[in-house]
């Protein structure tokens, strides 16, 4: 409706070539078209398109294609391409029928998404709304909530090992101190596969909530205060103001939050890797890819097939997201 309606190229007016002297038609180049980009502009545009395109091709698109191609191969990563044996869909068949960690990994990835989306993200948004109230010591509270995002992963793994250790962990020690647990019935937080996934999700949510909190807080600070005033003059209470006024206004931030949540849950990897390399109840596709491709295992083809499956799942979400965005832009 506004800028989009103009067919003028968006260029800095200061660098646009001056209109030819003596009337717009007389000085026009022989081709009959007015050249609006100077040489410098074209170099800049070229660089800004080609360089990122090149980097994307080299570091994203080509490796992705290579993964898909290698997923039909059997290769231990040693020697040249001539040592690659092509085995068709054998890897996929083995993954689905002959690789016990695969289906648990799919389930865990879905669970991860659901928990982050319905628990951790709303929790982070809730923190942000509370902290936006200008309560006392607001900055003091922000720090511990955001801290997990700043901490190095190694430290996070270490911190949770101290909490969750069956024999020496803080949580079991507290439970036993208050008589809620007998020492020989200690909960095996990381060892029992049915509990481990929730223990890991708690650690992940702890980190994710802080991240969302900060993003959302920044958004909330940017909301025009007069909107809230108007709402309260009209008699809306806090809750209603948030859901009817603030939340819709924050739509761009909401989209970012949703995208980040989906991305984070698909690439969830670091925590489970540092806990137990993604085994025993913490299987995730990303961890399976890593343990097959990297390290000494070098099941390059098998790992690539897992990576391709992960790519396909990601594409589903990306497609849904892009379709939604484009649809809304058209409106």
């Amino acid at each position: 409706m506004t800028v989009g309606g103009s067919d003028l190229p968006v260029v800095n007016p200061a660098t646009v070539a001056k209109a030819p002297a003596g009337g717009s038609h007389k000085g026009a180049p022989r081709g009959g078209r007015v050249r609006r980009l100077t040489g410098n502009d074209r170099i800049v545009v070229f660089a800004m398109v080609i360089v990122p395109l090149f980097l994307t091709m080299v570091f994203v698109v080509l490796p992705a294609i290579a993964s898909v191609v290698l997923s039909f191969a059997s290769w231990d990563g040693i020697g040249g391409v001539s040592n690659i044996k092509w085995i068709g869909f054998e890897n996929y068949k083995n993954i689905v029928t002959n690789y016990p960690p695969f289906w648990p990994a799919i389930r865990h990835n879905v669970l991860w998404l659901v928990v982050l989306f319905f628990l951790a993200t709303p929790l982070g948004m809730f923190f942000a709304v509370i902290l936006d109230k200008n309560i006392r010591f607001s900055r003091f509270y922000q720090t511990p909530i955001y801290l997990p995002v700043v901490l190095s992963l190694a430290l996070i793994g270490f911190i949770w090992q101290l909490q969750y250790s069956r024999d020496f962990g803080l949580i079991n020690a507290i439970l036993q101190t208050f008589g809620l647990q007998k020492p020989d019935e200690a909960i095996d937080w990381f060892g029992d596969p049915n509990i481990a996934i929730w223990a890991a999700l708690a650690a992940s949510a702890w980190r994710h909530a802080g991240y969302i909190m900060l993003l959302y807080l920044a958004g909330l600070k940017g909301v025009d205060p007069s909107l809230r005033e108007a709402a309260s003059v009209d008699g809306a209470n806090e809750v209603k103001t948030f859901f009817s006024i603030v939340f819709p206004v924050l739509r761009p931030i909401n989209i970012i939050v949703v995208v980040i949540t989906v991305i984070e849950s698909l690439r969830a990897f670091d925590l489970v890797w540092i806990i137990n390399k993604g085994r025993n109840g913490l299987e995730l596709i990303s961890a399976l890819v890593t343990s097959n491709v990297t390290g000494e295992a070098s099941r390059i083809g098998f790992g690539s097939a897992l990576a391709t499956i992960m790519l396909a799942i990601s594409l589903i979400f990306i497609t849904i997201y892009l379709a939604t965005i484009f649809k809304e832009e058209e409106q």
Binding site: R166, D167, F168, D184, D188, W189, F190, G191, D192, N280
Partner: peptide, 15 residues
């Protein structure tokens, strides 16, 4: 020792 999968060998050695 029960529940070995949550225990590192260092923790087992401590026992």
């Amino acid at each position: 020792q029960a529940d070995p999968l949550g225990r590192t060998w260092q923790e087992a050695a401590q026992a």
